[in-house]
């Protein structure tokens, strides 16, 4: 042990004149050999489903070691630069980050779509849509603002958002559409889901930020509120957005190093592609059936061999 650190220090001293870059000291990439794959885990269940299945296949079918790291989206991207993250397996848009890390810094590359389509929007429980049919158009939201008042919304209607790190234009939307609402952050997907379930079960009014793919939609009905239609470029300036969210083609991003040297692991991540239903199924296992990621992935993998077989790179 000691000898190797002495060696590293000596190396540092000799390298001193060159300075250290931000990825100095990273473990050398394990080119070709079965190595370690660092998977970022972003904080929502859908993402975890992707990661669980990929982790399972990498470990059980390809013989890699997988390290998972719980990180918010943007921090995961930073991980490409520091070498802490090899792959993000469900990315929602983030054109600005792509520009920085893929085009400018050239530390990351796009590894293709996951096959899922992402939808972000505002939702109300089904019973509200039944009781107030016109509530599903944003123009009428101000009329119902009083219904959504809570202790946190300061006299206005409450629009419940999730984790502060999620992709959201809601504050700008509320301002630019002149809605008498206040965005309140619940802090996590779990809190959002809990609020939504309570709103359905106890018939409490709730207007909330939500997204698909999402297992909850398989259990309970929620109705999306129409916002001004999305047109290409209408969300270019995040401060002036006044239109709906686009449909996201969810994709995978991997670090440049991983793409170059990741071998079969990289191929698997690149080939990974499934449907919203697949993901919701695994999410359901994870959330409602109390399975660990490994158990959930195992169950899905044994039942869906046809789906994942093609992802395994030839020769493995």
């Amino acid at each position: 042990m000691r000898i190797s650190y002495v060696a590293v220090v000596c190396l540092l001293l000799t390298a001193g004149c060159q300075g250290a870059t931000s990825d100095s000291g990273d473990p050398a990439p394990s080119a070709g050999s079965k190595g370690t794959v660092n998977l970022a885990i972003n904080p929502w269940v859908g993402y975890e489903s992707n990661a669980a299945v990929i982790e399972y296949l990498l470990e059980k079918k390809l013989g890699y070691t997988v390290e998972t790291k719980n990180l918010k989206e943007e921090i995961s991207w930073q991980g490409f630069e520091t070498g802490e993250v090899d792959a993000i397996v469900e990315n929602w848009g983030h054109d600005d980050l792509k520009k920085t890390y893929i085009e400018e810094k050239k530390v990351a590359v796009d590894a293709g779509p996951t096959g899922n389509t992402g939808i972000i929007g505002w939702y109300v429980p089904q019973w509200m849509a039944d009781q107030y049919p016109d509530i599903t158009d944003w123009k009428n939201l101000n009329k119902y603002a009083g219904l959504f008042k809570t202790s946190e919304s300061g006299g206005k209607g409450q629009l419940l958002d999730g984790d502060p790190s999620y992709v959201t234009n809601d504050e700008a939307l509320v301002a630019n559409l002149k809605l008498n609402y206040k965005v309140v952050y619940s802090g996590s997907e779990a809190a959002l889901i809990k609020a939504a379930q309570q709103a359905t079960a106890q018939k409490k009014p709730l207007l909330f930020y939500f997204y698909e793919p999402q297992w909850l939609f398989a259990k309970e009905k929620y109705v999306r509120v129409k916002l001004p239609e999305y047109t290409a470029g209408c969300d270019a300036d995040p401060k002036k957005v006044a239109c709906d969210y686009p449909e996201y083609v969810l994709d995978k991003i991997v670090s440049k190093k991983f793409a170059d040297t990741g071998g079969a692991a990289y191929q698997l991540v690149k080939n990974f592609k499934w449907t919203n239903d697949d993901q919701n199924l695994v999410s359901d296992y994870l959330t409602n059936q109390g399975m660990t990621p490994e158990r959930a992935a195992e169950k899905w993998v044994t039942e869906h061999e046809a789906t994942w077989k093609p992802w395994i790179p030839a020769g493995n």
């Binding site: 918010k72 989206e73 943007e74 921090i75 980050l97 946190e152 502060p164 952050y185 619940s186």
Partner: peptide, 17 residues
């Protein structure tokens, strides 16, 4: 956990570019 204000700004600050 939803306390908002400065704490939220900080959380958002290191999670949103």
């Amino acid at each position: 956990v939803g306390a908002g204000a400065l704490g939220y700004d900080v959380v958002a600050g290191f999670s949103q570019r």
